[in-house]
Amino acid sequence: MTSYIPYGRQDISQQDIDAVVEVLHSDWLTQGKAINHFEQAVADYCGVKYAIAVSSATAALHIACLAIGLGEQDYLWTSPNTFVASANCGLYCGAKVDFVDIDPFTYNLSIDELTQKLNGADQQGCLPKVLVPVHFAGQSCDMEKIAALSQQYGFHILEDASHAIGGKYQGKAIGCCEFSDLAVFSFHPVKIITTGEGGMVLTNREDLYEKLIRLRSHGITRNPELMQGESHGAWYYQQLELGFNYRMTDIQAALGSSQMQRLDEFVSRRRFLAQRYNYLLQNLPITLPRQHPDTESSWHLYVIRLNLDKIPKTHRQVFEELRQLGIGVNLHYIPVHTQPYYQNIGFKWGDFPKSEEYYADAISIPLYYGLSKEDQNRVADNLREILT
């Protein structure tokens, strides 16, 4: 029987297992030292001052928006080519959401579209308070140009780097927040490193850090300097704002710290496999992923686009035939504005044509650390047979 090749999967070593078991034998399964250790490991790697571990990247996006003051009557803008959480985080705060179409070269938010939309919004008095550029597939958006526009138009920048830990922009680690207020990572099992479920917010701003720490744990502080009135004793805490139970466990953090030790190895292997795909798939009627010269992707995804005018099959037929052959392809993403929920609040097909064109012919093929050359050859051979 032919084995199944998933589009992505985690890689768990004995070192990872031992790290988790050590926590299970300890006195702290949550809110212990493993959290601080993991946060410091990520902060050091990215060259950022503060890192706050949370229960998911969605939670990270939510409290990042709250920390920066997003609220009712404000606008959050993001890319349509992303998972719904990149937009939903604005709605969680009572804000309005809008989108900026993608660049057909990188599939990231288009700088030209952003510039044009900001100019129109400025004239209409409805500029965004927060922009969420999404580093799709692990490739950074053009953050220097986005930062220049933020200076001109006065919006905050929250990087959705869920795909991108281990990647670089202009030679620096994605997540360093050189051109943003905050950045968010995801540690879902198909991402570069995993904690099972989990996420992290990074920032260089101490004021945001202090607020994020409270927001992830019910808005509570034990710091006497932040309390109203004097502390009643060592047991005392105060809730200063409405927060959430978005904490990560020490079990997850121990796994994350162990995985961080292999992050460069994971990314190096993904880059090798991506280059190998470029060779194996050349001359097929598809468009291979392209890279901006300022970026070094972490290659969370390897996305091909079908040249449907040169293929005697539909997008759906190619997708389903690959699945039938045990190739676990996927599609990232269905444009957010086309989801029924977003249609119900006023968006429609045709609003963001580049994202829709991308959706009509894109396929994510298997890419993960443990993908063998033999399985990669099988993916390429099956794709060639289907397309030619």
Rank of each mutant, 00 (worst) to 15 (best):
Q317W: 02
Y237F: 05
F266H: 15
N278Q: 13
I102D: 01
T295R: 00
Y246S: 03
S86R: 02
L202N: 10
G47I: 08
V42D: 11
D98I: 00
R214W: 06
E72S: 10
F179P: 00
K373I: 13
I12F: 12
S186P: 11
P6K: 07
L127W: 06
D103E: 11
A53I: 00
H218G: 01
I12M: 10
S231P: 13
Q10I: 04
T195C: 06
D375G: 13
L76E: 05
Q124F: 11
H300I: 14
A19T: 11
P340A: 09
L371P: 03
L149Q: 08
S372H: 10
L383N: 05
L273E: 01
Q252V: 05
I193R: 13
G138H: 02
N377Y: 05
S298N: 08
Q14S: 11
D74I: 02
Q238M: 13
E197K: 03
Q123G: 10
I251L: 13
L301V: 06
L212E: 13
G166P: 03
Y169N: 07
T2M: 14
Y4N: 13
G199F: 02
N88G: 04
G328H: 00
K172P: 01
E385H: 05
C176N: 15
S86F: 11
Q275E: 14
K211R: 15
H62D: 14
F99Y: 14
Q170A: 13
L70K: 08
L284I: 06
P189A: 10
D122K: 07
G175T: 02
N382K: 15
P353A: 15
Q275I: 05
T106V: 12
V379M: 07
D361L: 08
K354I: 14
N81G: 00
V132F: 08
R262I: 03
G196E: 11
C46I: 02
H232P: 01
L240V: 05
I334Q: 12
I102L: 10
A137T: 14
R262F: 07
N204P: 08
N119W: 08
G47Y: 05
E374S: 15
A67P: 05
G32H: 06
S56Q: 07
D11Y: 15
Q31I: 04
C126Q: 12
A19F: 13
N245Q: 03
L91W: 04
V329C: 08
G199C: 04
V267C: 09
A64C: 15
I311N: 14
D142F: 13
R323V: 12
E320G: 01
L284N: 02
V201I: 11
A85Y: 04
A41G: 04
Y302A: 07
H25I: 07
L109T: 12
Y236S: 12
V318T: 09
K310Q: 15
I52K: 01
I111N: 12
Y7S: 10
N204D: 12
A87D: 04
C93M: 08
D142A: 13
L118G: 00
F319T: 05
F136A: 10
Y302Q: 01
Q291F: 08
V20S: 00
D18T: 10
V329D: 02
G196W: 10
T106C: 06
D112I: 11
T82Q: 04
K33N: 15
F179D: 04
G94S: 09
T221M: 03
I386E: 11
E197T: 07
F83D: 09
L308G: 03
V318I: 14
A67N: 09
L325I: 01
N36P: 07
T115F: 11
Q317S: 08
P293D: 10
L76Y: 01
L331S: 09
H292Q: 05
S140Q: 07
